[in-house]
């Protein structure tokens, strides 16, 4: 994993700036334009969620509403009043959170151990297994969704089944594998000489020094599971086990004359935990994505 520091600057531009006190106005202008383009849909989502249904889909005026209201949020909470009949907002949150928790925590444990064993332990078939992992990385989930559906149909409408296929992840194993491979082995050797066994070495020496890898895997798998749509769509038909994405997707697909204000409000509810998490741990998010580039 390369050390990617966020405050980015190669020394060349800095030197030039010092010489001429050069302010790159052109760059700032371009950045401003692209920011508006990238930010606008998000702005629309947030503002729209506070507008009356008539305003949300009303040409450009939707972007500059005359007044804001909580009506959409209120109406959502009215609509999803019962966990069994319509599902409840709280219920959707609970399911999404539980599923994410199982996948992220479970995944970190099993995949890091597997990655570590692949990187450090000697056993027969290690190379074959590694090849298998690399090949499995590229198989799209959609390609195995249907057979999985048959295999797990007995578990439909449970929370566990929504998480189960994603805990073990060839991709995460591969990420951990490359990270551990690049970790100097002397630390472990020192620990062995100090008298630590393999498990203790892993827990007390490797784990604390592999935080970047764990953060990467946690974040990437969190983004993936929190957004997952196809699998819960196949495996759930009862509102009490809907995750947020399904609840909102249903709303989107059911209404022939969509009430965007309401859906936007729902969308905000869906994205706020994720976005807040991102803004707080931005460094780690960006680092975890950046760390992907080091493989290849």
């Amino acid at each position: 994993m390369s050390t990617v520091s966020l405050p980015a600057s190669s020394s060349a531009p800095r030197r030039r700036r010092r010489r001429r006190r050069h302010v790159p106005w052109g760059v700032y202008a371009l950045l401003a334009i692209f920011s508006v383009l990238f930010l606008f849909p998000i702005y629309y989502l947030v503002v729209g969620s506070f507008e009356t249904p008539a305003d949300t889909l009303n040409g450009l005026r939707a972007a500059a509403p005359s007044h804001l209201t909580f009506a959409n949020y209120h109406s959502l909470s009215q609509q999803f009043f019962s966990s069994t009949i319509t599902g409840s907002l709280q219920g959707f949150y609970t399911v999404s959170t539980l599923v994410s928790l199982i996948v992220v925590v479970g995944g970190m444990i099993v995949n890091s151990l597997a990655g570590y064993a692949l990187a450090r332990m000697k056993f027969r078939g290690r190379k074959t297994l590694l090849l298998l992992i690399i090949v499995l990385v590229i198989i799209p989930f959609q390609a195995i969704a249907v057979p999985l559906y048959y295999m797990l149909s007995g578990l439909r409408n449970t929370v566990v089944v929504q998480a189960l296929p994603f805990i073990g992840s060839a991709f995460s194993v591969y990420l951990f594998y490359t990270f551990f491979l690049n970790l100097p082995p002397q630390l472990e050797e020192a620990a062995r000489i100090d008298g630590a066994g393999p498990w203790r070495t892993f827990l007390q020496i490797i784990l604390p020094n592999a935080k970047p890898a764990f953060a990467s895997v946690a974040i990437l798998s969190f983004i993936q599971i929190w957004s997952s749509y196809l699998w819960p769509l196949m495996m759930t038909s009862q509102p009490n086990v809907y995750p947020l994405s399904i609840a909102i997707g249903n709303l989107l697909k059911q209404q022939s004359t969509p009430n965007y204000g309401e859906m936007f409000a729902f969308g905000v509810l869906l994205v706020v935990p994720m976005a807040a998490f991102f803004l707080v741990f931005q460094r780690w998010f960006i680092r975890s994505v950046a760390s992907l580039a080091v493989k290849g």
Binding site: P184, L187, E189, A191, R192, G195, G197, N209
Partner: peptide, 16 residues
Amino acid sequence: PGERDLAMVFQNYALY
């Protein structure tokens, strides 16, 4: 290595 009761100093120190 643990059972041998030796101490080792590594070139790069291998401090935790």
